[in-house]
Design a protein around this nucleic acid. Structure first.
Lengths: 156, 156
DNA sequence: CAAACCCGCATGACACGTCAACCATTCCGC
DNA sequence: GCGGAATGGTTGACGTGTCATGCGGGTTTG
């Protein structure tokens, strides 16, 4: 076993700062979204995906691919959203195992009310604070990290 | 009410990429840390703060300031960590309301075993993938966002 | 066409985080 | 000093996320 390569001061600063920024930013956005619209970030992501779909419906595994959640998380969350009347489940005609998730009118109304508000918040606390160069760099960073994670993600 | 300033394509790309990177990265780190060391990221943060302290003990409100958690979250989490034998609670001599949290030998052992492993993972999936310029920019971004959040944080 | 395997999804148990309410102590103004 | 506010911390209820497991419908292979 080789020697541990601890983070040097500069790296620590970056990593801790990033951790702190990330946790504060998302807890802020999450809390405000919840308070003002009654939707969680998770609800929001699901409803965006569904309403982007032509007929407002998706198979759970398609939805899962878009939001990148574990299937059990998705299953639990969809049940709760169905209980709240934001989505509806149907059985799938073409696949006896599967289900189809359909956005309801209430779901559409919720996301259409929430979206403008949420975009404002994202601008206010993040996007509008950064220069085009910073945004560009952040996009590169994100892509690099995502590719690395995807590359060496052989699953369990 | 003014017109909504939706995100343009470039901004969408940045924001969605950042969201995706952030969620994938932390879920990866969290899961691996948990599997390999039995500690959650929350455990890790608490134990780092405690073991950084000269006498291995802190008041909960000091700990709360370091990890930036709500007090109820901290209270719940410290109870669970105490149940697992990672920390110990004492009553505070100098303040009848307060408590003192002390890291146990088991807690020290846990964090000392986890730290090298976790640092390797942070390097592997993040730090080592980025150029010094990218790290520099990310630090700037983090600081900008944190300052903005702190500035206009009127509390409840 | 049957056995074996895989896929899509649900479920139960449990850890976690938030909210709202609460209790006890200490601090502060008068 | 005393009444009230502020501080330090806990608790219970509830929504959420993960892990392990299960289950029935599909698909493939002999």
């Amino acid at each position: 076993m080789s020697e541990v390569r601890w983070l040097d001061d500069r790296e620590q600063l970056v990593w801790r700062g990033f951790l702190s920024m990330q946790s504060r930013l998302f807890s802020r956005l999450e809390r405000q979204l919840q308070r003002e619209t009654g939707l969680s970030g998770a609800d929001y992501a699901v409803l965006v995906s569904l309403s982007d779909s032509p007929d407002g419906s998706l198979r759970p595994f398609e939805l899962g691919a878009e939001v990148d959640w574990e299937k059990s998380r998705l299953s639990h969350h969809l049940r709760r959203m169905a209980d709240r009347g934001l989505v509806k489940r149907h059985t799938c005609d073409t696949d006896g195992r599967g289900a189809v998730i359909l956005i309801t009118d209430a779901g559409r109304e919720a996301i259409e009310k929430a979206a403008p508000y949420h975009v404002e918040e994202v601008r206010r606390w993040f996007i509008d604070l950064l220069t085009p160069e910073q945004l560009q760099t952040l996009a590169q960073i994100s892509q690099t990290v995502i590719e690395r994670l995807a590359a060496e993600d052989p699953g369990p």
